[in-house]
Design a protein around this nucleic acid. Sequence first.
DNA 1: ATCTTGCATGAATATCATGCATGGTTGGAT
DNA 2: ATCCAACCATGCATGATATTCATGCAAGAT
Lengths: 305, 305
Amino acid sequence: MAQLERTHLAIVRAVDQHGSLTAAAEQLHLTQSALSHAIRKLEDQLGVAIWTREGRRLRPTQAGAYLLAVANRLLPQLTQAEERLRQFAQGERGALRIGIECHPCHQWLLKVVSPYLAAWPDVDVDVRQEFQFGGIGALFAHEIDLLVTPDPLYAHGLRFEPVFDYEQVLVVGAGHRLRGLPYVQPEHLTEETLITYPVALDRLDIYTHFLLPAGIRPKRHKPIETTDILLQMVASGRGVAALPRWLVDEQAGTLDLGAVRLGAQGIAKQIFVGIREREADIDYLHAFVALARDHGGGMGASVNG
Amino acid sequence: MAQLERTHLAIVRAVDQHGSLTAAAEQLHLTQSALSHAIRKLEDQLGVAIWTREGRRLRPTQAGAYLLAVANRLLPQLTQAEERLRQFAQGERGALRIGIECHPCHQWLLKVVSPYLAAWPDVDVDVRQEFQFGGIGALFAHEIDLLVTPDPLYAHGLRFEPVFDYEQVLVVGAGHRLRGLPYVQPEHLTEETLITYPVALDRLDIYTHFLLPAGIRPKRHKPIETTDILLQMVASGRGVAALPRWLVDEQAGTLDLGAVRLGAQGIAKQIFVGIREREADIDYLHAFVALARDHGGGMGASVNG
DNA sequence: ATCTTGCATGAATATCATGCATGGTTGGAT
DNA sequence: ATCCAACCATGCATGATATTCATGCAAGAT
């Protein structure tokens, strides 16, 4: 039962580099005798000579030359593997699979990921949106490592943290009749076309928190996939939409849009990031949460502020 | 001082394959405890968890998944390396670098190499013809492993063996005036065109053993590279040449050639193969010499026979 | 010749991996 | 609910084995 061990590869390479067992031994912090014994044993087990002893010189046999080639090929891979593992250890390296469950989350995420990528170049960031058993399920099933969601669920083993407060407002175009009002009532929308992302109604805050409680429906409801187009349509007066206020503010220079509070109290929203509790102290995960919190603080707007 | 050893790779892979430490231990002919200790130590040294212990299940961490990938990549290479080394050991595998120093050697070699390749598929055969310090030097310098030569040199550490006897004869074309003579004298060639390989005169037997001792030179001397063309020219009466008799015999069906003995005694030649003495019992080398000997015996022609 | 350098080897030793015994936890079966 | 079986972790003992030490031998170098 021959076993080609890492030591053997190291010895062969060191001897090749330094020309002698003695010199090689020094590099490996061993004695010449140790190397001699080690190779001797390997030779016995494999039944093949690694070197021919010519006087006091070691000449590699064909087998030895082959073994050297193997060593030069494999040893770097082993050391690199160790290096990477150590990076995993310190949380310098890893794969951060982020799951998002809402469209505003996506918009916000874009702003956070960019500085994160710069700060953690060895972390592979991956963003996913579709989950068979929902975001929480994906977190439990290790499909993702971090969940961005407006609906935290304080389950055992998970840890959620709010990272971003914002107000969901009604967005209207230039010269819209509702623009400039202190706030709108549900009734104001009975004659409007409401543009939303194409998701179930119960996942749209304007329905769950505003329209449905009042038993009101807009005149028309139009789903649009992308935020850009959605904003364009609102700006051109084709309809109104419910979006985070900061998203509207960002477009101030580009599009002529107005933001109107939804109801007297407004709709206050929070985005949370959730992670598995046991992974809370992984550096690159922790760093993301911290970065997210900082970023959120700067943009967040209190409804009552 | 972390050391990623072969065992660790084996353990990680076995656990992945069998799902549990216990099952993996069985495959590796070790106890569950041994694996647990081994991985534990690696984890401590690297500072990274390979698996997370969830209940009685081991779930690979990202580091563990990476390590598994490394194991799946490297372990086969290690076992294959062992396999190859064992082949070297039994002499099943190797590189046989053959050196040749003479044109007849080359012709003869072609006949031997072909069956050899079939018998030793794992041996790389390489034929070389140019040597800075001559064939013997190349053998000493390990440039080649086997030398085919008509001029053996019984130096210390080398072993030569005759493998092929032949007679060097004068080859003449159809209807040539010398054809049918029992033998030719040097004087017969004073009016002939002598065709030879393009090498120094002192490496041509017809000069060293026949013409020069008699102080005779042919009318013309024409060098030709390849045996095929050379024979064509002789057959068409453009000149005469000195070649092994068996080479002429081989062409009997194709070309109309005649062979005439050079001098009353003829020129007897021998081809030898030489190897380094210490490598005499390497299977694939030994086999070549044996095969060469058998092949030579069948074709050899005694000058006096 | 003599000295130096380098490898091999046998015996002594130190190290380290392995096994044993055991306890804790979990998930499933009764 | 309870028990059982499966599985992993761990402290300790021990045996295997890698390493060293001391030495001899051979071959270049001076």
